[in-house]
């Protein structure tokens, strides 16, 4: 196929969009809406994933070390720091701990127990929540460590939840992707139906299927991409609003899907264009076989 014909097909695709303005508008709107729903779901799933992960990261190993002053526990801290996988350590404020303890056990205070009876509590952050148990057992072996609290069950449960969230979101995205493809191919079928005379004439004068199909597939790609840009616009606006709302809800904190604006645009346009092309291709097949 010559360059002249390719040029003609691209030209035909845009002429087609212009001449069938209302149908093109309907298709773009449908594509934008379906991609918007798909994108919202995918972004929420990603945000949920990240949110759960960030919670897991906050589950650190609590290490209790005996000692009267910070200097006493320094050698132990050094050893913990040298274990691979340990990212950060935080010695808790003993006064605050004491206040909290007193609230729980008023009997201790009345008995005149001094502050330094409490061990130092150190929060150890690890790089990978899956390695908590392994690192905890290493810390346990260090001399001077009184007790290690790894909250293993909680971590396991959260990891299990994370797995479920992952599976559900992948399944959800797949189902929505399928539905979006169906809706879009239906919208394109309507635009084709409006042009069945044109297609019929092309067939009767001996246009090859490729010659009939390509401009329409290009049209599908363009409509898909335009729909995707609209969806991107609304998702970006909506995303900013949701993030603002989330920050107001204290326990949620900063929430983000971790997907950049450019990445989101590229992803949506790619999906929109692919679905547009596939939708056209499938719908035209039916017409060509009539």
């Amino acid at each position: 196929m010559g360059l002249r014909n390719v040029e003609y097909m691209i030209q035909e695709a845009f002429t087609g969009i212009r001449r069938n303005g209302i149908m093109a508008f309907a298709s773009v709107t449908t594509i934008a809406l379906s991609l918007g729903v798909l994108g919202t779901f995918a972004l929420l799933a990603l945000a949920a994933n990240r949110f759960v992960l960030s919670r897991v990261n906050q589950f650190e190993i609590a290490v209790f070390i005996e000692g009267k002053t910070l200097a006493d526990i320094e050698p132990v801290l050094k050893q913990i720091r040298s274990i691979s996988g340990v990212v950060e350590m935080n010695v808790r404020d003993r006064k605050k701990e004491w206040e909290a303890f007193k609230r729980d056990r008023p009997d201790f205070e009345s008995a005149g127990v001094p502050l330094d009876v409490l061990p130092f509590a150190v929060d150890v952050k690890v790089s990978d929540p899956g390695r908590i148990a392994q690192i905890a057992s290493k810390i346990r072996l260090i001399k001077g460590v009184d007790r290690v609290n790894e909250s293993k069950e909680l971590v396991d449960r959260i990891l299990a939840v994370l797995r479920v969230v992952k599976v559900l979101s992948i399944a959800g995205v797949l189902v929505l992707l399928g539905t979006t493809a169906l809706i879009i191919s239906n919208a394109i079928r309507l635009t084709l139906y409006a042009r069945r005379l044109e297609i019929k004439i092309m067939q009767l004068v001996g246009a090859t299927n490729q010659f009939i199909r390509l401009p329409l597939v290009i049209e599908g790609v363009v409509l898909g991409a335009v729909g995707a840009v609209l969806a991107w616009f609304f998702l970006t606006l909506g995303g900013r609003y949701v993030a603002l709302m989330a920050e107001k809800i204290v326990f949620l904190g900063r929430i983000s899907s971790g997907v950049g604006r450019a990445e989101l645009a590229c992803g949506l346009i790619f999906v929109g264009a692919m679905i547009g092309a596939a939708g056209s291709f499938v719908s035209i097949r039916r017409f060509l076989h009539d």
Partner: peptide, 8 residues
């Protein structure tokens, strides 16, 4: 023209 164009 359409009838001629679509057969290239």
């Amino acid at each position: 023209a359409f009838a001629m164009r679509v057969i290239g």
